[in-house]
Every structure is written in C-alpha cells, then in structure tokens.
Nucleic acid binder design. Structure first.
Lengths: 343, 343
DNA sequence: TGACTTTTTGCAATCGATTGCAATATACAT
DNA sequence: ATGTATATTGCAATCGATTGCAAAAAGTCA
C-alpha cells in the first residue's frame, strides 16, 4: 500500500505521456541532457506540482546506495557524544545523508549485533566511536566491504581513517600548566588502557612528566565514568607520595577525583589541583570550575562524517588520520603550589 | 553490485533446490507452517550456515514497512535529549527498529524539510521532541499518514499521543518547597511560551502561587538556554519586588539565573534561592548544587518509543497521553528564608 | 481405484527507481 | 535521395523479498 499522497515516477510518466525511464532521466541532473529540453521542463514542472520526491528505498534497492550512515556509540548518555553526534548529523545532512544511531554499549558481541543490523539496513558506511584497541568490530565491517571511520578513539592499526584529538599534546598542556605553577608531585587517573584515549593520554602524561624529569604516579580507572574515578584517585592520594596535583584522563574521572577528595576531607585546589580533559558542558560551573583540556567535539563529528563521505564516494580505501589540536582551559581547580610552610 | 558476502534468498533457494518463495515462507515464523517440516529445517540450516540476513531494503520496498523511526530533536547538544534519545534507541532496538536522528532546530520550515527527507526514507513513524504549540509539523506528518508521537512537549490538540512530565505538579513541588521554607516573594523565569513546557510550567507556577495567595512575578526567556536565562532573571531581580527565590523553567535557565546573580553581586542561596527543572547531569556538582525537579527522561524516551510502536502495529489512531510524575530534589541552591533583620 | 481434501510447492507479479541496449526520430552531409 | 551521425525515447531487466493464486503432491475415504 502506497503511503497517502506520495507520488511515484509512474504517475508523473502518466501525467506527461512519456515513459518512466524518461522521467527518471529528466529528474536526474546527471542525465538530464539525455532528454529533450521541452520534455524535461514539462516533466520537471509536473513533478514539482505533484510534490514528487524519489522513494529512497527503491533507489537504494536498485543502486545499492541508501544514503544512510550507521553511528555506533558506546553510551549516548555520556555528554561528550552529544556534540560529536550533532556534528555528524550536520555534516551528513548537507550531503543528503542521514545517521542511524545505535547505543551499542561496550561489549564487542553486542556491538557486532548492531553492526549486522545496520548492514541489513544497507547503510553506506559506519562511524565508530566505540573502538577499543585492536577491535574486532572494525574487521567485521571491513570484511563486509563497509567503509568505516573512527571518531574520538582510534585503533593502533592503519586499516581505517580516524579523527581524534591530539591526546599527547593535551596531556603535555596539562602537565606544563601544573609544572609552571610550581607543582612537582603530580598523579594521573588514567582511563581504561584498552581504549586509545586511555592509553595515549597515559603515555602523554608519562612523557610530559619525563620531560620535566619528574616521576609519574598513575592509577587506572576501569571505566570513563565519575564513579570509576573514585577508587584510582583514592589510591593515588593514599600512596603517600604527597601529590599536589592530579591530571585525570577525562572530565568525568576528574569529577570522581573530586568525590574522592571530598571523602578524604581534602579541598581543591587548596590541597590538590585537578585537571580534566574534554571540557564537557557545565564543568565551568561546578565548584571549583574545572581546569581542563578543550576538544572540538563538534568539529570532530563533522570531520568524521566528511571523512566517511569521501570514502563512500571514492572507495579507494585511502586511510587518513586527522588530529585536532586541543586547548588548555584554565579555571579554578588548579592553583599555584605554595611551598609547604609559608613564612 | 551486491555487498561482499551478503546472502540472498535466491542463493539459499539454489543451495536447497527449492523456490525462493518457499525459502521466504520457511524463514518467516508466521508462515513456516506452510512449508513441510523437513524442508523448512533444511532451509533454516542452510540459511544459518550462510549467515543469511534479510535485506531490509527489499523487504521495505515490498511491504512498505522499513523498521525505521524518525526522531526529530530541536537540539542534540541540549543535555536533556541525550537520555531521551537513549531511551528511545533502547526501546526501539528490542523490537528490531532503529532510530534515524535529525537535529532539526527550532524553525518549522527546516523541521518540515527533515520530515520530508525521513518520509522519503519511508520511516514507519516519527517521534517529535520539537513541537511548539499548534505546530504544523504534526499536521504535516498526519496528512501523509505517518504515525506520530510527541515526547517531552505536547500540543494542545488531541491529535496524537504524547508522553510528558507533569509540569504543573513539578512547579507545585518547587513552589511548595520554597513556601514551606519561608519564602513569600518568588519569581519565575519562564521558558518560551510557545512551547508546552514553557506555558504549562508558567501556569503551574501561577496556580501554585495563587494557591498560597501569593503574587506571581514572571519574566519570559526567549530560549531554553543558559544565555536566555540571564535577561529575564535580571529583570525579575531589578523589578524591586525584593524576591527571595526564583523558580526557573529548566536547569539551563537556572544556570542563567546564577549568571545574572553573579553579575549583580548576589549570592545563592544566601540572597536568593533558585530552583531548576529537569535535573540534568552534573547540576548536583555545580556551586551551589542545584535544587531541581527530576524528570525520568530515559523512561520518557522508552515510553515514547513504545507508544509509537503500538500505533505502528495497530494503526487505530488511538490517542494516549502519558504523564510522568516528577520528583523534587533538594540541594544547596535553596535555603530557608531568614527574616530580613536577624537579631 | 476414483473422488475429494489437505498439504506443499512453484509461478509470476509486485514494490519504485535505474540503466544497458535497441529503436526511432531528427539533423547533416554528400 | 541516400547514408551517416546524433539526439531522444522506449523496452525490459534488475535490485531482493513477499504473496495471491494455481498447480502438484500427498493423504483420506468409500
């Protein structure tokens, strides 16, 4: 049953007295020149007045292109994904594509189930924000000839394009900021090390500390969540290294660090300075306002969509890694370190 | 060109020596009984081993059902939509449906363009989080026979089902909380009055104040954003009504109210108590932690998806309005009102 | 064995748009 | 007028799954 009032090629053909193939050609800018000018104009006019819009499903079946892109997120509720998704949706829309969003969690098996589902919808490509290192989801897509782009995280193999923030630079900015404010004993609450962000930020932290010839104290969180940050932060603080600052691998972990400090009766930044990562919404409003590393998430989403569209068009499997420059945002959670015993 | 390795009915038919129609029936639980048992089993086995998954595009073209649902959001970046979208995606996934998300903004013309696009994708239904009062988007969908459900906001006509929070109750909770803490001079930063949330919350505020025989001071914000809250908050404070508390129509407006107070050198809750609405993520961490009205956004999204799926199945146009109970969350932005001159 | 059910299977059309190929029409040259 | 090139148009197959109808096969009963 045809949906109410939706015009088909056949109707236009009937109304103009030509064959559907002629109508199809007349309405396709690429093929319009194959049709006599007056006829094409007549067809365009009728199509216009009937409000004709091509049925994408039929087009998709015939051509194999659906104008749909799958977007796999590990957790929609995580505030960093909203601007990424927004950027993706925007960039896709300008090229006539639409995103199908899947909140696929962190388990590989479930992610693959979602990919298969999207594959059945015949999406033209996939944007993954989910990958952990050496993920099998990427291979799964690639095996099936599906273009893939990674966003926010990337894998340590050169199979597909990606767009991420310069995590190493971000950590250097954070550490340099603290060091230039007199901090020397600095700890790091790292993210899960099976994600590129977790690993690269940890490495970036270590290298930045080494550069200043300082020892790196590190504890790993199991998840990028506020709750996940509490235990490692407590561990760092309790390790009697007398830390004066903590760099967290993302803002949520920084919030968990605040929680841990509160439990231990420590104050920020008076006792310990804290730096986050991401500059997600509202962290400027919490108390104290969070010093953090700003990442252009929206631009990241746009870039991911553009990379994917390019690959969909060209299908040359050309791998490209875009790295965005992060920016240090200084707020109230960091303060200069006063010498232990003021005069 | 067929995507690498994707099995079709025809291949299974060839492999089992039967006609595609038989394969189709054997794999459809509804029709399996029309096929001899042994044959059906053989087919199922082959289908399994070839990893057959029906091409949704073909099914969609033939049956007119795409298993896709359009979701129209006014602003993905707004934190309240993340949990709503998450709930929608989850509830849809359990029934084999997927959401196509459109960040459609607030302009009716653009929203309609997105609807048309989704219509071309032959979505089975639409979830709108965008409606303003007496919106033409709803009519546009209805005219085309597309099932629609409204989420978070609703329209003042009884055309389609909706799921919203009890805005009036929410405001009553807020006002009662303030009054029971000794506040008498209470203002309201309302949302745009062309949205149901804006209007209903304003009315709820007025009624709750009237119930206590108190005068209602109200200023309207042009948008539900932090920036949009500043001007009306300043206006309220400047109106020399000596307000002791402000109820904002949502959390972002409450944050704008904080901004305005900061500009004016006022402190919260010492000088003025503030109540928000939504309990979006992180408002428990800002300074002072925001007293607000919690809404089950995730449940709201799930409910919307379920309402829509029901309508898609039944197509009886039965209109249903679900109203969720909000909850008062008391935090640090509200405090008892001390008499102006303490002893 | 023949008549009649019931079960199982295949045929072919269909959804709507696209496209290679062939057919017709028109223009141009000789 | 004839031939050749070019511009238009139509035909029919195709993408993959579904489904009404008819044909074939199997089962039942007298």
């Amino acid at each position: 049953m045809n949906r109410v009032g939706l015009t088909t090629l056949k109707q236009i053909a009937a109304a103009t007295g030509v064959h559907t193939s002629t109508v199809s050609r007349a309405l396709d800018p690429q093929k319009r020149h194959l049709v006599a000018n007056d006829v094409a104009e007549r067809i365009a006019h009728v199509a216009q007045s009937l409000g004709y819009q091509p049925n994408r499903v039929a087009t998709s079946l015939r051509t194999g292109r659906s104008q749909l892109v799958g977007v796999l997120l590990p957790d929609i509720a995580n505030p960093v994904f909203a601007p990424i998704l927004s950027g993706i949706a925007e960039a896709l829309a300008t090229e006539g594509y639409s995103p199908i969003v899947a909140d696929a969690g962190n388990e590989s098996a479930q992610q693959i189930a979602f990919v298969d589902n999207l594959l059945n919808q015949r999406v033209d490509g996939m944007i993954l924000a989910t990958v952990s290192r050496d993920d099998d989801v990427v291979g799964h897509c690639l095996d099936r000839g599906l273009p893939v782009v990674l966003v926010n995280r990337f894998e340590f193999r050169d199979r597909v394009s990606s767009i991420v923030s310069d995590d190493e630079l971000g950590m250097r900015l954070a550490v340099d900021h603290l060091v230039s404010n007199g901090h020397r004993r600095i700890g790091h609450v790292s993210g899960p090390l099976d994600t590129s962000t977790g690993l690269l930020r940890r490495d970036g932290f270590s290298r930045a500390m080494a550069h200043h010839a300082l020892p790196a104290h590190i504890e790993e969180a199991s998840h990028f969540t506020r709750e996940g940050g509490v235990a490692p932060a407590r561990a760092l603080i309790g390790a009697n290294a007398a830390l004066t600052a903590i760099v967290a691998a993302n803002d949520l972990l920084a919030l968990g660090t605040f929680d841990a400090m509160r439990m231990l009766g420590l104050r920020c930044p008076d006792d310990i300075s804290v730096v986050g990562h991401n500059d997600m919404p509202l962290v400027d409003l919490i108390s104290p306002p969070l010093t953090t590393i700003r990442i252009g998430h929206r631009e990241m989403g746009q870039g991911a969509a553009r990379l994917l569209l390019k690959e969909i068009e060209a299908r040359d499997g050309r791998v490209q890694h875009v790295i965005l420059q992060p920016e240090l945002i200084v707020r109230g959670s960091t303060a200069p370190w006063r010498t232990p015993d003021p005069p």
